[in-house]
Simulated assay, not measured.
Amino acid sequence: MVFVKAVIVWLVFIIAESINGTVRMFWLVPLLGDIRAHQISFIMGSLLILAIATIFIKWLHASKTSQLIKIGLLWLLLTVVFEIVLGRFILGYSWQRIVADYNLLQGGLMPFGLVFLVISPVIATTVRSFIERAGVWGSKGIRV
């Protein structure tokens, strides 16, 4: 059941990241240029992932670090497959265009994003625990 729930949370990520990418392409790139837009979009995407993971982490019912890392690895795998299928087979991008997002020397930030994605369940568990201890999500607060 954890696997199915993790895929559902990943779908929420993809929707949020798709909106983030649309904002980057239509508003940030014309205003700031491609490199700066990608940098801002990367930060916003990371914050979105952390926020979504923090909201849903308790719902996943995974408490061990090994379980959390496995969830992060699943999210990484799903993301890479999604990027390839969308980029190559739906949008018709060349392999060079797809790989450029992963090339740090060309300004690609995707490797950092994928590492963050893998560790985000662990970070989200810590953030959620801190928020609950602070009383923001108390016994009558937000529950997912």
Rank of each mutant, 00 (worst) to 15 (best):
R143Y: 01
T125A: 14
V23M: 15
R36F: 01
G33C: 10
G138A: 08
F3L: 11
V115G: 02
I19A: 12
G92A: 06
I14A: 12
H38D: 09
W59T: 07
I98E: 00
I69S: 02
A53M: 13
S120F: 10
T126S: 07
I84K: 02
I119S: 00
I43S: 13
K64W: 09
A100V: 10
P30V: 00
L78R: 01
F116D: 03
D34W: 06
G87Y: 01
F42H: 05
V9I: 13
G87Q: 06
V85Y: 11
V115D: 03
N103K: 08
E83T: 02
I35Q: 15
L68E: 10
S63W: 09
I142M: 06
R24L: 10
E83F: 04
D101H: 13
F116L: 10
F56Q: 03
F89L: 08
V122W: 10
L105M: 12
E83G: 07
L91M: 09
I52Q: 03
I52P: 00
W137K: 05
L48K: 04
F89H: 06
T126D: 00
V23D: 07
F82G: 00
L28P: 04
S129A: 15
L105N: 03
S46T: 05
I19Y: 00
S120M: 11
S66R: 07
K70N: 15
I14C: 07
G33A: 14
Q96P: 01
E17R: 02
T79K: 03
K64L: 13
S120L: 04
G33M: 05
A6G: 05
K70E: 11
M25L: 11
S94G: 08
I43T: 13
V127P: 03
I8Q: 09
G135T: 11
M1E: 11
W75K: 06
V81Q: 05
L117P: 07
L105W: 11
L114F: 15
R24D: 07
L48G: 09
Q39L: 10
K58E: 03
H38Q: 10
W137C: 08
L73C: 14
T125I: 01
L47D: 00
V144T: 12
V9N: 15
K140H: 15
L74N: 11
E83V: 02
A62C: 06
A124I: 12
N103L: 07
V23H: 00
S46F: 02
G21L: 06
L47F: 08
I123C: 04
W27F: 15
T22W: 13
P111E: 14
R88H: 14
E83S: 06
R97W: 12
I71Q: 09
Q39P: 01
L78H: 05
V9G: 14
N103Q: 09
L50M: 06
A53R: 02
A16D: 11
R88Q: 13
T126M: 08
V29Y: 01
